[in-house]
């Protein structure tokens, strides 16, 4: 029952909030891994958008592209995993060399 009262705008609002939370985390956190977590939230906000649009705005019949959004979301999930794998490897290497993962303290390169 409740689900039927939910409209597209509710999902868009949810995803916008999630995106903002993620962006806020990226900006305010200093630890590289926490920044990575913020990025994951932003990616999942995009996924909510994709699935919601897929559900509510199915393209006109005959175009036969009804699964675009679902596939897009699946690919974004896969991408997020790849990005986390590469990112964690880079962070691990930085920790090995510089003994810190805090973005502020990694500052050999400047203006």
């Amino acid at each position: 029952m409740v689900l039927q009262q939910l409209g597209l705008q509710h999902f868009l609002a949810l995803s916008a909030i999630l995106f903002s939370v993620g962006l806020f985390g990226v900006i305010s956190r200093r630890n590289s891994i926490a920044i990575l977590l913020g990025v994951e939230l932003m990616l999942n906000a995009a996924n909510i958008n994709l699935i919601a649009f897929q559900r509510y705005l199915a393209p006109p019949a005959g175009l036969n592209l009804v699964l675009d959004g679902q596939i897009f979301a699946l690919i974004v999930i896969t991408l997020a995993a790849c990005e986390a794998a590469v990112g964690l490897a880079i962070i691990l290497n930085v920790y090995r060399v510089l003994r810190t993962t805090t973005a502020d303290e990694v500052s050999l390169l400047k203006w």
């Binding site: 995803s15 990025v39 932003m42 995009a46 994709l50 880079i90 930085v94 060399v97 990694v106």
Partner: peptide
């Protein structure tokens, strides 16, 4: 150390930029 740091900075900026772009693409799809 400089190479490691460069890759970390490039990765963090790049990950955020692509996350923003993916969000934009999800809206464009809609």
């Amino acid at each position: 150390p400089r190479s490691a740091e460069a890759s970390l900075k490039y990765f963090l900026y790049g990950a955020v930029a692509s996350a923003v772009m993916i969000y934009g693409m999800s809206l464009l799809y809609g």
